[in-house]
Amino acid sequence: MEQYILKIKRFDPEKDRKPRWEKFRIEMEFTDRVLDGFIKIKDAIDGSLTFRRSCAHGICGSCAVKINGKSGLACQTIIKDVPPGEIVIEPLPAFPVIKDLVVDIEPFFGKNREAMPYLINNEPPPELERLQSPEEQEKILQSITCIMCGCCASSCPSYWADKEYMGPSALLKAYRFIMDSRDRALEERMNSIAKPHGLWRCHSIYNCVEVCPKEIDITSHIAKLKRLAVKKKLSGFFKG
């Protein structure tokens, strides 16, 4: 057991007019997760500390917060990997704060819906599965691992500035279906992302890649979409 100081940015909408900082001194194991720290504080020191959590092993995407200036999952950040000293915890940037570390994630989900995130194929389905070769699946393999935690969007400078920007995860979602060999709605999906507040607001800054807890190479997926859009437009020209 070692002593750690968690410096947490707190905000109670019913009491505070603006966020305040609070420091908590807790004993933690070397192998504990930052989330364990939150739970310890809530259970033993201050029950009003509010945060989201569920699976505690990096698959549900609930507990994304900013840890030492970096968006990440509290359940996937191990104490030993954090530099010694104070650990600074804030709610995810770019989203309105509801209470303490809980942010309003609704707009983020809304933007994902803009990308039409469902398979579209109106051809009569075969009796058994639609065939898809492992090579075809390889193309979408990374993109299907997204857990919608919001780390990518919250660390993207374009997303900070442009309130209407779809953001990395919505573009990744579009990629997941555009590149799925079973999908038949390329045109509609391209329309949904190739727009001023879509694809073109990605400036290949790579912050999303730096923070993605699932280690998805989001920027290169978006770059592929840009190239595909250009290719589609140009081939449209040559066809007339």
């Binding site: 398979l119 389905p125 799925d180 999908d183």
Partner: peptide, 15 residues
């Protein structure tokens, strides 16, 4: 599968 679940595939493309 028809709803879009990305099942892993055999070399022939089956689930």
């Amino acid at each position: 599968e028809h709803l879009g679940v990305p099942f892993s595939r055999t070399p022939e493309g089956k689930i």
